[in-house]
Design a protein around this nucleic acid. Structure first.
Length: 560
DNA sequence: GCCGTTTTCGGCCCGACTGTTTTCAGTCG
């Protein structure tokens, strides 16, 4: 699966073309990269069938380049550009307040190629001698270098969202604040977050802006105007506040929720209908015809309401025009958690504690699925321990049903590490890979899917955000086989995993796969991670019908 | 570089803020 690599290379080409000020070519490359990033199918499939140009934004020229990347892992065109400008664009562009124009000047005047060069000259005060850069900017650059180095700029959704909620509550506490909403990628439920966007309506903008910029959480004020302000929080995360009037709020929320690609497409749609869309409203013949709510703007554009999680320009606008959007799953429809660990393996709580907590979340059932024996590091269960665990569950009498389960390892040869006669005593068997090896990962998972004792595949692609790439898998084969055998695929709700991820969920559903959203909880608070799993499922266009743990206890008992 | 039942050529989303400017370019989202 080289989609990520291809998209990265095309984006890099776009970065260099920015230096040449080839605006529209830049846009073309970015659009192609975006298409490939969202593609749930191996791009090589399209290349093999010579169907690359059927993808939106990919014409003959870029198709040729994609083919070259797939064949050689490189792109001679990019290498030519890199020779022309031997600059580390990635890291320089990550610096706040520096864009392509500045990079070009810095390279031409000071031969700045990377962060080290930039820091060196910023400390010497060389930058301020350049036209367009002053003392302030130089200072900001130095601070930003530190931030980029320390964090790579992005955070997990589960990390950023509570911070955003807290700041939102602070603003709501101000008497002049009216409506306050979190927008941006947090509202879309994106798996990682670049910054926090908050919108508010007020009749006293200045008071709110002053209040916001003087908050204790504001480590530094990055921008402060009459309609917007940006602060940097202690940990480097940036939070932007925008002020709007009540009658503009829908347009503002729509615009600042994004994504950028979605906005561009929506504005294009408006233009095609001789209208104009901006963050203040939808206009026709210079007259504002919709702006108060997102709903009325969608309606005026001839669209169904599009949930924030779907706004990625990945087919949702077309579906909304046809009135074909899925009715997305909600957290309150989840009836149980089917992947939970306890002190029997590497969890921190007893079965009873986890079960009671699940009950308080309104669940009808859970599955206790501790690790199997070969995962020694996690205190895996052997046959004897498993038997005793089964007895413990039998002796518990709680108001929540407990399925007896196990999370069994898929060994390198694709076999499970617990014998069949034991597995057949259990209600639910989750098979997961915990030790990636050189063997064909697709085959390993396929053989687990085909095992008649296996009900579910845990965290199928193995990716961990900021930590580990997904396994090289042929997901078409896996989804096809899972659909055929009725093997459930997990949407692991751990915020580092979120695995399956959004685009794969969408594809699995198209294959007819059944999915389950599980927390894989090891500690008590982990049970609340369900929220992130549901958001991810929504981003994958999942309806309650696709998610088996929306079933009531009587119905799900027929499965296990 | 891509795209097209208004076009195969001429378009390609739109506005706020900052810093360094004497009226605006660059950056950001």
């Amino acid at each position: 699966m080289k989609n990520a690599l291809v998209a990265k290379i095309l984006n890099r080409v776009a970065d260099f073309l920015e230096l040449k000020e080839e605006t529209f070519r830049v846009r073309a490359y970015r659009r192609a990269a975006h298409t490939i990033q969202l593609l749930p199918t191996d791009i090589e499939e399209y290349a093999k069938k010579r169907k690359l140009t059927e993808l939106p934004g990919i014409g003959r020229n870029i198709a040729e380049k994609v083919e070259e990347i797939l064949e050689t892992g490189r792109l001679s065109y990019l290498e030519k550009l890199e020779k022309e400008y031997p600059i580390d664009m990635d890291s320089l562009l990550a610096i706040e307040g520096i864009g392509p124009k500045t990079i070009k000047i810095l390279y031409e005047k000071l031969k700045i190629k990377n962060l080290q060069d930039l820091e060196y000259h910023a400390r010497r005060g060389d930058l301020r001698k350049i036209k367009g850069i002053g003392e302030k900017k130089e200072e900001r650059i130095l601070q930003s270098i530190e931030f980029v180095r320390s964090t790579l700029g992005r955070r997990l959704l589960a990390y950023a969202e509570p911070i955003a909620e807290y700041i939102k509550s602070l603003i709501e506490g101000h008497p002049a604040a009216e409506r306050v909403e979190i927008a941006g990628s947090i509202r879309r439920g994106g798996e990682t977050i670049g910054d926090i966007d908050i919108l508010t309506t007020t009749k006293k903008p200045k008071e709110i802006i002053d209040y916001f910029t003087s908050l204790e959480v504001a480590d530094e004020i990055i921008a402060k105007g009459t309609k917007k302000a940006i602060i940097r929080l202690e940990d480097g995360l940036e939070c932007e506040l925008r002020i709007f009037r009540e009658e503009e709020f829908g347009a503002a929320l729509l615009y600042f929720t994004g994504s950028m690609e979605f906005n561009v497409e929506l504005r294009k749609l408006a233009r095609s209908k001789s209208m104009k869309l901006n963050e203040y409203g939808l206009y026709k013949n210079g007259k504002r015809i919709a702006s108060k709510t997102e709903k009325e703007i969608f309606k005026a554009l001839g669209l169904e309401y599009i949930q924030p999680e779907l706004r990625e320009n990945n087919g949702e606008i077309e579906a909304a025009a046809r009135g074909n959007l899925p009715s997305l799953i909600r957290e309150d429809q989840i009836m149980g958690d089917l992947h939970i660990h306890t002190i029997w393996s590497d969890g921190t709580e007893t079965i009873e504690t986890m079960a009671r907590a699940a009950k308080s979340l309104g669940y009808e059932y859970i599955a206790v699925t501790d690790h199997s024996g070969s995962l020694k590091i996690a205190g895996g269960l052997d046959e004897e321990k498993l038997q005793r665990q089964i007895e413990e569950i039998d002796n518990l009498d709680l108001k929540v049903h407990i399925f007896k389960g196990i999370e069994v390892n898929i060994r390198l040869d694709g076999q499970l590490d617990i014998p069949d006669d034991i597995l057949s005593k259990l209600d639910i068997v989750i098979a997961s890979i915990h030790s990636p090896g050189r063997e064909d990962m697709t085959e390993r998972i396929l053989s687990a899917i085909q095992d008649k004792h296996v009900h579910m595949i845990g965290h199928p692609t193995g990716r961990k955000l900021f930590q580990r790439e997904e396994y090289p898998l042929n997901l078409d084969r896996i989804f096809e086989e899972a659909a055929k055998t009725g093997t459930i695929l997990e949407i692991n709700a751990n915020p580092i995993r979120l695995d399956l991820r959004d685009i794969y969920i969408k594809k699995a559903i198209e294959y007819g796969c059944k999915l389950a959203i599980n927390t894989d909880a090891h500690r008590l608070p982990d049970l609340h991670n369900m929220k992130w799993g549901v958001k991810t499922a929504r981003r994958g266009w999942a309806t309650p019908h696709d998610i088996i743990n929306t079933l009531k206890i009587e119905k799900i008992k027929r499965i296990f």
